[in-house]
Nucleic acid binder design. Structure first.
Lengths: 291, 291
DNA sequence: TACAATGTATTCCAAAATGGAATAGTACAC
DNA sequence: GTGTACTATTCCATTTTGGAATACATTGTA
């Protein structure tokens, strides 16, 4: 039995719902459903009664829950006892692929010169795959956006802050404005980031709030490409201001959005995890960094 | 972390050797090596010191061992507590693909009419894959050959017994004999079962004991095909007597082997496992079956 | 009774993990 | 040095995984 299944089980039991638990665990509902089914098959007993709309624990499920807590405690004790043997210097960080734009590379460089012995591993991943990996203890710390994050589950540290601007061709009629409201864009072509990215979700949600469905000219592209398309008047785009500033395109202008749509870049780790010495150093380095 | 890795780890720690532990666990050395390495990577610490010829536990390994026992105990307690919720009638059996030839199908039929409510699942697998699956609790009971089995680890019940005979074309010069010694076959073409099967291993080992390397005309085939090849004088074969009797080929004769090479068919389950009610019924049914 | 809302299961498919056989590499006894 | 007895690595076929889309089921409501 895979130990993470214990947590999956406990989440489903707690919320009485696969879809809610899947959300909370940052995995898909179909995956969670399959994994719990596989667990039940492996154990040879049904853990949940799914015949009603609200799923409930079977008797076996109740028994499993009792043991699950103890098993989990043992497991955590094991992990925590191994903590001290981890090379004190080891530190693995995962980040969304915008660390340059938000100056995080510079923090890291300064940390490395302050702690030259730390063996820092830095990996970039798409947002969607970061949280499951972080929860699985594959990384010590993560740089992520705070949107859609269940802040109850994580210790967080604000590192940077950004907000949407409207990227327009300089030839666009609205390019002369000092501010644009989303509702004025209802009939525009939207050039979006990849479906599944947080920025995409944020943009779509914002349009919904403004009362329209954005006409998406999907692009699943890099900022450079998006700005290129905007420059060639294929449409407009919602992009984060600092990302825009970083990449700047001579024929594209960014106009503030009347509605404030904010996104904070945070450093985070799961509350149920103990940090290594190095990770704590890094955390404190970022926390105390003079701004 | 996969719970079975705890057992893998404990086996390596106990024997101080990957290859011995792999043998004991009935998996390949390369697989075990990779799995322990993956475990170490997942935990972020080295558990074994491999720099010396005799591998030893690192400090972290010692710590892991302490917790491993407790974790394992919790896990076993969990499994055992779920036992009672398993449909009392459920019973899954795995067997090598010769149950018809050894009359096991008839035992099963009789058990089913004696216990019509038992939901018996029967699956056939190649010998090599049975023991790992049995150790992983994927099945309650297994019909297997006793050769090369570590009988310390399993409760066993003899079900049938068989021995090698030499299968020859009726036209073969030795076909008139009442008994043949292996050493007389040193220059024959051997038609063998698939590499990796127990019967193949037995045959090769027997030839080695008789002081020669069998010239294999590999066939990785079914008995029918092997007997067909023997009939057409492509070579000779070592086959189990009862298997031969069952399939009988008019142009093939079986001569007893002077050296007795025996193979018992046994019913087995791991000693560290508790049987379900039905499994126990089946066990006792077989044990008390009048012979 | 139909229908909308809200669930879970299933299917499909690309990507990743698994595991054994063969092989390379390494410590140690002699 | 050389052979022996181990572990690591590579290769590759097979299996597993996990998400997107979709099918299917329950329940509350018109």
């Amino acid at each position: 039995m895979e130990m993470k299944l214990v947590n999956y089980f406990l989440a489903v039991a707690e919320f009485g719902s696969f879809s809610v638990a899947a959300d909370r665990l940052y995995i898909s509902q179909s995956s969670l459903s399959k994994q719990i089914m596989a667990l039940e098959k492996e154990l040879g007993v049904a853990l949940f009664d799914r015949s009603k709309r609200n799923i409930t624990l079977t008797e076996a499920g109740e028994t499993f829950r009792k043991h699950a807590d103890r098993l989990n405690d043992e497991y955590k004790a094991l992990l925590s006892s191994l903590m001290e043997y981890k090379s004190a210097a080891s530190l693995s960080i995962v980040a969304i692929p915008v660390i340059a734009q938000y100056g995080i590379t510079s923090y890291i460089a300064q940390f490395q010169s302050a702690y030259p012995n730390s063996q820092l591993m830095l990996e970039e991943r798409e947002a969607a795959t970061i949280l499951p990996a972080l929860n699985n203890h594959q990384f010590d710390l993560a740089f992520i956006r705070d949107n859609y994050l269940d802040t109850e589950q994580y210790h967080t540290l604000e590192v940077n802050k950004d907000k949407f601007v409207v990227a327009l061709s300089v030839k666009h009629p609205l390019a002369v404005r000092v501010s644009i409201s989303l509702s004025e864009l209802a009939n525009e072509n939207f050039i979006m980031f990849d479906k599944g990215t947080i920025v995409h979700e944020l943009a779509v949600d914002a349009c919904h709030k403004a009362g329209f469905e954005p006409r998406n000219f999907y692009a699943s592209l890099r900022v450079e490409s998006i700005l290129g398309l905007v420059a060639s008047q294929s449409g407009i785009a919602l992009v984060m201001e600092k990302i825009f500033q970083y990449h700047k395109h001579p024929e594209v202008i960014a106009i503030p959005l009347a509605e404030i749509v904010e996104s904070k870049i945070i450093l985070a780790y799961p509350k149920d995890k103990k940090l290594t010495v190095s990770a704590r150093n890094f955390w404190e380095f970022i926390r105390d960094y003079p701004r």
